[in-house]
């Protein structure tokens, strides 16, 4: 029962899963990174305190974060169709994945940036640094290890979401697992896809942790 078409399908599945995960995470950061920076700056004790902006962003994030991904996937289908031209397949799945990742990323970035020592920020202010310089050199520069750990967590989460998209023909390993494991009761194929999914997440985790450790100069005895 395992033949070359199966192998090809698995390889394509891996390719599609990695493609959806990586591209959605990337787009997610394009939206989520500025969001996280805005949250950090406008919160109280931030460099640009603004209650209204903070509360608005905070609320948007809380609302979007509480929509279950499977529902979001269906709700944004018209938008997906508009942007991609169809509502199934791995490219189409990138749209809801990005929208689900962005608020999560916003929160992760916010929490990473808020870990940065206030004293160092104060020192930069006392040197007459522009807010932009403080954001890039001090906040992002000093929080880079934590930000990178955040990226690995986001990748894992987005990969998990991408598998859910299999329900509506989203493509990738999740799609295969649902079609074979759920609709055809082909448990071995489902288990194989599962092994691949676990392996991908594991790999990303290991690489991420390694890079984060390398980049961290705080305690390298």
């Amino acid at each position: 029962m395992w033949d070359s078409t199966m192998t090809v399908m698995m390889l394509e599945g891996i390719r599609d899963t990695v493609y959806m995960t990586v591209v959605s995470t990337l787009f997610g950061y394009i939206l989520g990174l500025p969001l996280g920076i805005a949250l950090t700056l406008t919160d109280k004790n931030g460099l640009r305190q603004n209650r209204t902006i903070y509360r608005t962003l905070d609320m948007i994030i809380n609302i979007t974060r509480s929509v279950p991904f499977l529902i979001l996937l269906i709700v944004v289908m018209p938008l997906t169709k508009l942007l991609v031209g169809k509502s199934y397949g791995s490219t189409a799945t990138i749209v809801p994945l990005t929208l689900a990742a962005a608020p999560l990323i916003g929160r992760m970035v916010e929490s990473s940036l808020k870990e940065v020592n206030r004293g160092v920020i104060e020192a930069a202010v006392s040197m007459g640094a522009k807010t932009k310089t403080i954001v890039f050199k001090v906040l992002i520069g000093e929080a880079r290890t934590s930000l990178l750990v955040g990226v690995t967590i986001v990748l894992g989460t987005v990969l998990g979401y991408s598998a859910m998209a299999g329900v509506v023909g989203g493509g990738g390993l999740g799609d295969i697992a649902i079609r074979y494991g759920y609709y055809r009761y082909d448990t071995p194929v489902m288990l194989v896809t599962l092994v691949f999914i676990v392996a991908i997440v594991q790999l990303m985790q290991v690489v991420g942790t390694l890079l984060a450790k390398r980049m961290d100069h705080r305690n390298n005895e």
Partner: peptide, 28 residues
């Protein structure tokens, strides 16, 4: 920029070399 300040806990950029730390105000 003309009023320097030093702190109890030094407040250096932990992820930057000593040289880059000293370069920082000049970069600003």
């Amino acid at each position: 920029q003309k009023i320097g300040m030093i702190f109890q806990h030094f407040n250096l950029l932990e992820q930057q070399t000593v040289l880059n730390n000293v370069c920082f105000p000049l970069e600003i």
